[in-house]
């Protein structure tokens, strides 16, 4: 292992990590928004939109991100829709992640007893208040582990951004590998970089889940 090579290229990796992290984060945030939206549409059984959401979730969950990105980045421009690499990255990750987040939230909502909504209605809450104060907090608590699992999954999936013209971690590594031939060092740093990004996320997930369990307001139900 050539440590001086590694030391010399830390800045390159930092830049790559920043790209990966930034667009990963945008993707995750947009996914959360799309997920909540889909979930609400299905919860309130809004006609038409509800079927659209269901179809979208299936499409998103049953196709690889790589293929989605090829379609966005190399397919769409041919019919006049030109998107930058960055836009493709965020849109692609959101398309994928929105479906996964929607499912996570839905399983959270399913876990909330229907009678809770009735009890909320019976003390005169409006449907919106009912969602906000009664249903959603409980659904969220159940959904948190799945949501964190999705966040980790999505950040891992950002490695596929390397097919786009953007200097994310994978492309930084690839450029160094093909340029200098220090394959072992290059790959070592790549793996280390992903580990350093994902470890804090995983620790945060454990902490939040533990807190929710200790607060333990719910009846203990088997996971």
């Amino acid at each position: 292992m050539d440590w001086s090579f590694i030391g010399a290229h830390v800045p390159d990796y930092l830049e790559g990590a920043w790209v990966t992290l930034r667009f990963g984060l945008y993707g995750v945030l947009c996914s959360l928004a799309v997920g909540v939206l889909c979930c609400l549409v299905r919860y309130f059984r809004i006609p038409v939109l509800r079927q659209v959401a269901a179809g979208y979730v299936e499409l998103a969950r049953n196709t690889p991100l790589l293929v989605q990105l090829f379609f966005l980045y190399a397919g769409l421009p041919r019919v006049g829709i030109r998107l930058s690499a960055e836009a493709c990255a965020v849109i692609g990750l959101t398309f994928l992640g929105g479906g996964y987040m929607a499912e996570a939230f839905r399983s959270g909502l399913d876990a909330v007893d229907r009678s809770q909504a009735e009890a909320g209605a019976c003390i005169g809450l409006t449907p919106a208040q009912n969602i906000r104060y009664v249903i959603f907090p409980q659904a969220l608590a159940t959904a948190v582990p799945a949501v964190f699992a999705n966040v980790i999954f999505l950040i891992k999936e950002t490695s596929v951004f390397s097919v786009l013209a953007m200097m994310d971690l994978m492309n930084v590594a690839d450029t160094l590998r093909t340029g200098g031939g220090r394959t072992v060092e290059v790959l070592f740093m790549l793996a280390a970089a992903y580990l350093l990004i994902l470890l804090p996320v995983s620790v945060a997930a454990t902490l939040v889940e533990r807190r929710l369990r200790y607060a333990g307001f719910g009846d203990s139900r088997p996971v």
């Binding site: 980790i152 891992k156 999936e157 950002t158 490695s159 596929v160 390397s162 994978m170 590594a173 790959l187 790549l190 793996a191 992903y194 580990l195 994902l198 470890l199 995983s202």
Partner: peptide, 10 residues
């Protein structure tokens, strides 16, 4: 769980 499959492939 931590390594993207693509990184493992590389």
């Amino acid at each position: 769980r931590f390594m993207p499959q693509l990184v493992l492939l590389y």
